[in-house]
Nucleic acid binder design. Structure first.
Lengths: 311, 311
DNA sequence: GCGTCATCTTGAATGTTCTTCAAGTCTGGC
DNA sequence: GCCAGACTTGAAGAACATTCAAGATGACGC
């Protein structure tokens, strides 16, 4: 027995409840001819005559009535479930970024946006992988990398700097050590492998080994906060911690890296109600952030060997 | 928002419950590639990532899990409803014919078939319209007409005769009238308009008007039984009543007409389990019936003007 | 009985979607 | 590092869906 197409069943219910193929076809955005073919097809699949056709529309046969009663409640439940599921709140703007950027840059600034625009509804998501805008209900992402990326809009927001940071407790323990001779300090492995770049920039000898290796920036940062060692931190994430006194920068230098932060979104997001507001706000905040980072003592550094892109 | 295809939802549930696209594709009788495309499509339609793909199969994301839970019960209900509905009992042979033939010819003989073949399961349907074998779950029909009909097998069973019949009560009331002078009797209109043929065959003058007109043979027969008038009856239907004494033939003559009875069935019915048995039996019964009708006094008559075909 | 109208049907042509094929990617286990 | 299993991807071909145009049907009004 042939598998009955559920889409055909759906059309049958529509026709049955409308009682008129012409009107049902309109509702389905088809010609009456297409619907007529469909009804014939389902009758063939079921080997049953479901409608009596007449010049005043169609009437269900007894069997058609039975089928309608059997399937309509389930179909309704199914449609309702799908409707709930796929009904993204069009008014909520869905923003995605990695958790470090979320907590270190976006969240501290968001109260300003919410205060200025109470009508905005935001949906915030942390993710460690690049957003697939085709498959995921994300409207916009703050993405770290070298950009631009194909198929999406990529608007540069601000650069990134790295510097060695450590917890006050560690500094206390290493009281007599020279903060410019990092080779003698307990260093935490860098997920992005930038210690060599740092030593090339600042001079000195890299250590033969690190205290531990980490696969995410979050884990690295937590280890640094615990005083496990010196981390080569990204400023966008570390800066609030530094300003809070939870971490200290060793020395006075910051190394700019080729990666930057971008506002990334697919074409479809242009039409989103909150997109214009959010985008303008992010660019303004990024400009402020760039200005506040402008007093950093910097030199041009050689590009890092391995590019990394994260949302 | 695009309408979600229910057939895609069904495939999603299959893949989700199988937890492996390759095996699910086998179950769906597709290549894994087709299923992969489908899963991608539904993810796009819903703008959601439903699966995490891995080398050991697929795992539902949280959203995929939510969707599964939301739709699975309804889908199951729908599939069950459809399954019940479309599940013809393959072992039951569905036979259709008009009610007069059903009661006058088939039913009186069926006990013989059932006794000889207790394993047979029959589904009997009366219908006044020609069976549409494409749309209706009928395996075989006894059809009246001139045959053959396109798209189906048409096997001739036996001829048909007509004769004027009346109830004993009417005969009693018309005790002094000549049964060969029907023009003087109260005649019931014939649905097939054959009174003119009869008078051309038997002589005499048709009446200016009939007692009443009827749109079906059943109604005509009932009126005759009530003694309303003389009906021009078809023997296949009237004969049991005549043999029961409920109706009498006026005179000694029977007029053969061009229409006959056929066994009609679509190609697909050849494979039906009970078809061979039923078909052989019907042909044997038809042969017996033809033999029993062979002693009827008959002449060749002009063909009737309007052909009629009924199952 | 005839004409009109609304509705549905039908077959063929055209457009769209689905499936397969072939090549590729990814990951875990050895 | 290699291999196998599982899934992905784009293009080609197959299958299906829809439209178009002509036709059929039945109810209604004249």
């Amino acid at each position: 027995m042939t598998r009955i197409s559920l889409d055909l069943v759906r059309q049958f219910v529509l026709a049955a409840q409308t009682g008129n193929l012409s009107r049902a076809a309109e509702r389905a955005h088809l010609t009456v001819s297409a619907l007529s073919h469909q009804m014939r097809q389902i009758e063939q699949q079921l080997s049953r005559k479901l409608f009596d056709r007449g010049p005043r529309g169609v009437r269900l046969t007894a069997e058609g009535q039975r089928l309608l009663e059997a399937v309509a409640p389930h179909l309704e439940g199914l449609e309702r479930a799908l409707s709930h599921y796929s009904c993204r709140r069009e008014e909520a703007l869905t923003i995605s970024t990695i958790s470090g950027v979320m907590s270190g840059w976006l969240m501290p600034r968001l109260p300003g946006l919410v205060a200025a625009h109470p009508e905005l509804e935001l949906n915030l998501q942390s993710s460690s992988a690049l957003v697939d805008f085709e498959r995921e209900p994300v409207d916009v992402a703050l993405r770290y990398g070298r950009g631009p990326w194909p198929g999406v809009e990529s608007e540069r927001l601000f650069e990134e700097w790295i510097a060695p940071v450590a917890a006050p407790a560690l500094l206390e323990r290493m009281r007599g050590a020279d903060p410019n001779q990092l080779g003698a300090w307990p260093l935490l492995g860098d997920p992005s492998k930038r210690w060599l770049d740092w030593f090339a920039y600042a001079g000195g000898t890299p250590p033969a080994r690190y205290v531990a290796q980490f696969d995410t920036t979050d884990a690295l940062q937590r280890a640094a906060l615990e005083g496990m060692g010196v981390a080569l931190a990204r400023m966008v994430m570390a800066r609030p911690l530094i300003e809070a006194g939870l971490l200290r920068v060793l020395g006075e230098r910051y190394l700019p890296i080729p990666e930057a932060y971008f506002l990334v979104y697919p074409q479809r997001s242009r039409e989103h109600a909150g997109m214009r507001v959010f985008r303008a706000w992010v660019h303004a905040e990024a400009a402020d952030y760039r200005a506040s980072m402008a007093h950093m003592p910097t030199h041009s550094a050689a590009p890092a060997a391995v590019p990394e892109a994260c949302d």
